[in-house]
Design a protein around this nucleic acid. Structure first.
Lengths: 226, 226
DNA sequence: GCGACGCGGTTTGAATACAAAATACAGATG
DNA sequence: CATCTGTATTTTGTATTCAAACCGCGTCGC
């Protein structure tokens, strides 16, 4: 028989159209190609994706459950607008989840996982020094993703990510000031250390504060815009 | 013109099939008519609901997002089995949300809302004394629902409810012992008082503990069964 | 007799078709 | 001229159809 080639023998992935559509649409919403408040034109989008309405509508309904779009019966779907109220609503929930993530991660992360996160943190620092925003963001997301992973609770991960999209969308348009950027890096420094020390209470607190600060920045940007 | 009759002039509700189906299926799953692990037969269920597969499938996908069913591509959907692991996974997340609910409710509830909850609590007590399980459960849910309402955060409510279904299903089959029942009533007594006193920290702690105790009971019942 | 293979029925995924509701628009009416 | 009303068009909700993947069973080869 053929020996397990490790890389080649894994199950080939089959993605239902609806899943790809959810991802594509979500990205469009988070990045702002579909603007907040904008009405979603089924026919046009189906056309450009080259799919029929059935899987497309399935995707829309899933995004509605996530809170990224709002569907009104017989009147179609629209991207949920970003309001300060919405932000203040999502925020405390995500905050609680972030704190929990810290607590669990400090307790349950393997040494390897901690090492990996430290490495990611190092890379991120380099991008910060080089003022490479895009790369910095990528690493930033990777780190937070790795923390969820380390907490070892898929339900927590799914819930937090789903809420996170709603914030990330706001963060995306409110771009990072230099001051905030530096502060964020310092905060990362601190909680990476807390993780390494496996100090659950501290990590939880630092992650919560990190998120709080991020919100504060986004909130200011939103206010200033209006 | 016709004067606003207050009650009669509100928008008439129009429920898409998919929404009704989500509710119906969820209830079947929570109550156990659809047993954990059981495969979901699209055609048969569509037939008995008298709907076509399109809205039915939309409903299934939504329940999958909620974690009540698992769909495997080309192999259909099945009710997610209740495992101890799953319980332990959902639990901490819900716990964090419950604590947050307590905190917010203590801060933001109107006096009227607090009064209403106290009234519900009184009613529940009566049902407890009369050993009327069904009525007790109904009031119990009403109280927790009112707490979410009082916290005034729809996102929190939605998230917590959605996770709650997964636990409630387990609780449903592990039936309340006399000891646990009495303890639960005492706990309710305590947190109702904390709410009245608007003691946010205390209410958060009590709600968390209430949930912890509930889980402990369910966990024991599950273990004993296996 | 045992296991691999292939075939048919069944079930799922996606597209199309049809029905119902909403919007847009034009004509009627005051 | 403004407003209202009725009709046409578009859009949404649901049903039906078509295609692809899966499962069970029988047959064939060893």
């Amino acid at each position: 028989m053929n020996r397990p080639e490790a890389q080649l023998l894994r199950p080939i992935e089959r993605v239902p159209l609806r899943a790809s559509l959810v991802d594509a649409l979500r990205q469009m919403i988070v990045e702002g190609s579909l603007k907040p408040g904008e009405k979603i034109n089924e026919r046009a989008l189906c056309e450009s994706f080259g799919v029929s309405r059935t899987p497309f509508r399935e995707a829309i309904n899933l995004l509605a459950a996530e809170g990224l779009v709002a569907v009104t019966p017989h009147r179609g779907a629209a991207v949920t607008p970003i309001t300060l109220d919405e932000l203040e609503e999502v925020f405390p929930v995500l905050c609680a989840l972030e704190a929990l993530t810290g607590e669990l991660a400090a307790q349950k992360a393997s040494d390897a996982e901690i090492g990996a996160i430290e490495r990611l943190h190092g890379e991120m620092l380099a991008h910060y020094e080089a003022r490479d925003r895009a790369a910095y963001f990528r690493l930033n997301e990777a780190i937070h993703g790795a923390l969820y992973e380390a907490a070892g609770n898929p339900t927590l991960t799914r819930t937090a990510l789903s809420l996170g999209f709603r914030l990330r969308r706001a963060r995306y348009q409110a771009n990072l000031t230099e001051t905030r950027w530096t502060a964020a890096v310092t905060e990362h420094e601190a909680f990476t250390a807390a993780l390494k020390a496996r100090n659950a209470g501290l990590l939880a607190r630092l992650l919560r504060e990190h998120l709080e600060n991020k919100l504060r920045a986004v909130r200011m940007a939103l206010l200033e815009e209006a």
